[in-house]
Amino acid sequence: MLLPAHDYAQPGSLDEALALLNASPATSRAIAGGTDLIYNMRGRLEQPELVVSLRRLPELQGVRQLSDGSLRIGAGERLADLLRNEAVQRWSALAGAIRSVASSHVRNMATLGGNLCLQTRCWYTNQSEEWRAGRGPCLKTGSPDCHALPGVEVCVALNNADLAPLLIAMQATATLASAGGRRELPLEDFYTDDGIAHTVLGPGELLLALTIPPPPGPAVYWKHSSRTGLDFSWGTVGASATMADGRPVALRVVLGSLTTRPLLLDAPVRTILEQGLGDDAIAAAQDALRGELGALTNLYTPAAYKRELARILLKRALLRLRES
């Protein structure tokens, strides 16, 4: 599991980095914390010819409070540094979500952008090359077959980016940069339903920053995993609400890790907005989940458990909003 042969470049500015990436977009990859990329390179899921280091780029650093109260966070900010940032600490759900990522060791290396761009995961694919030889290639590694859900035409690997559900619920905006310019989009539009091209990042494009508006009301986050430390989640939920008289008048709930893209819930949220946060309303919202999940895989946890977990995640998020 050694690293495949590649070249390495350490540009001094963002423009230089984007130019390098743009010169050979298909065969170059950017490295920030490296915790995901190096892992995947060892398994030869990634075999870039050029690795471009983002380590010294000031443009990707910094946490700034904007005039409207929003936080603009550079994608290259280390998770550990964010946890020490006073502005981040004030948003306790966000701080909790960051703290739930992996271990302190990983958070001392990994970045916000790296977590949001985390490669999708599948236990037939995220293995060593030798291991994969036993199973044969799949959609992601160059065949028409999917081992996780036989027959599907689009890769169903899971999105385990722990921070995505809450940040989507909080209506974060992503700023993307490429040699061709910059663009902004809501974070929910950053992800796709395809486990291979799981973000909308174009060739040579980078996630530059996240802008998070101030929470209009309570925000909650919960991660369910096998154990508390160093684990990808089995399921996460992020929710943010605007409350009036103990009732949400605006609500966003996002489930993570169950599917290929973080799920911004629709029907359950409408149920709550119509019926409030009473027990019956929550039960109705849970039932309304049925149509939202789509096909679930047995990756890491059985599909039936994922279905059950989705109900629990939703319920617990709503209960916490009610209590807040």
Binding site: R227, T228, G229, D231, F232
Partner: peptide
């Protein structure tokens, strides 16, 4: 087949 996905408890547990 990994120390990540072959689960063992850690300090919290």
């Amino acid at each position: 087949p990994s120390r990540l996905e072959y689960k063992l408890p850690r300090t919290w547990e």
